[in-house]
């Protein structure tokens, strides 16, 4: 069996602050097989973004962050890497897409210049002409009709949807093995968001890229993920293949999430009574890909 693209085991994280340490993750385990699209769903503050940032190695740079647990990327122990080696993975083997495309692009450089920078991460020393050629091809891949105009524009001259396409193209430009998408395009309006997500899904499928898809929109998750992890207050409470989980949600929090779907905006998830509803019951794992089966 080949190593999964990402395997996280018992990840814990706390932030040391004035009032002692705040525990944010209480032992997260998840894995993403090669080419698999996995969703991480939970309400605001449950620890989705910090999980992705730990994988990228960004949280490790923060002072006051204390973490433990194992993270392996394509079989390599991420915890054993030096800062430099972690930097080398980012943007090349692992890349990320953020919430607000327009503010994610540097306002004083053209898209062309930024694209060149991104390509330099994967192909050191790549020249302007070759970079432009590859950028044009990459933008054509995300269905941008006039890549030339986009490359010579600044982000503020383009629409949000266009910038989102640019970001998707950049994130995939160096052919990463893993794409982390942290609520991609939630800043966009719903139709544009749906269009760009579909596009992203097609590209990811074509490139065989594994994806960790972070969202609190269950409708989107159902459409785009092969498998789902539900995270609640720093713990995975339920996981399983998308169909199984949606057909038969077992954990009370997952049920609460689904009940809230029509009015879900991120904040509208009800608090559940942790004592009464069996929150501390063991993790609910639908048959298929449990973490236990994965361990040797």
């Amino acid at each position: 069996m080949t190593a999964p693209t990402l395997a996280i085991d018992d990840l814990r994280l706390g932030f040391r602050g004035w009032a002692g340490t705040v525990e944010v993750l209480h032992g997260i385990s998840l894995h993403i097989a090669k080419g698999e699209r996995v969703a991480l769903v939970g309400e605001s503050g449950s620890g989705k973004s910090v999980t992705a940032r730990l994988v990228l190695g960004l949280v490790q740079e923060l002072r006051g962050a204390r973490y433990s647990g194992r993270m392996a990327f394509e079989g390599r122990d991420l915890g054993a890497l030096s800062r430099r080696e972690r930097e080398a993975l980012r943007g090349d083997r692992i890349s990320m897409i953020f919430q607000d495309p327009t503010s994610s692009l540097n306002p004083v450089y053209t898209i062309g210049t930024l694209f060149h920078e991104v390509l330099l991460r994967g192909t050191p020393g790549i020249g302007t002409a070759e970079a432009r050629e590859r950028a044009v091809a990459a933008l054509a891949d995300v269905a941008i009709a006039d890549p030339g105009r986009v490359l010579s524009s600044y982000a503020f001259q383009l629409s949000g949807g266009m910038n989102q396409r640019v970001l998707i193209a950049m994130a995939l430009a160096n052919n990463p093995a893993l794409l982390l998408a942290d609520e991609p395009g939630t800043a966009l309006d719903v139709t544009v968001q749906a269009q760009t997500l579909t596009l992203m899904q097609q590209l990811v499928a074509r490139h065989g890229t594994s994806m960790l898809f972070i969202s609190h929109n269950l409708g989107v998750v159902r459409e785009f993920a092969d498998r789902v992890y539900v995270i609640y207050k720093g713990r995975i409470v339920e996981q399983g293949p998308t169909e199984a989980l949606f057909d038969n949600p077992l954990h009370p929090y997952t049920r609460a999430l689904m009940a809230a779907v029509p009015r879900i905006t991120g904040e509208g998830i009800p608090e559940i009574d942790e004592e009464q509803t069996g929150f501390y019951a063991p993790l609910v794992a639908h048959p298929g890909h449990s973490e236990a089966e994965l361990r040797p």
């Binding site: 740079e61 930097e87 080398a88 692009l105 004083v108 920078e117 991460r121």
Partner: peptide
């Protein structure tokens, strides 16, 4: 956010300071 993006793309701190944050 564009600095966070530069970090996520693995640019070294020195380059982020001189090229992405300075201008």
């Amino acid at each position: 956010p564009f600095i966070e993006m530069a970090l996520a793309f693995g640019f070294p701190q020195g380059r982020i300071a001189r090229r992405f944050a300075f201008k």
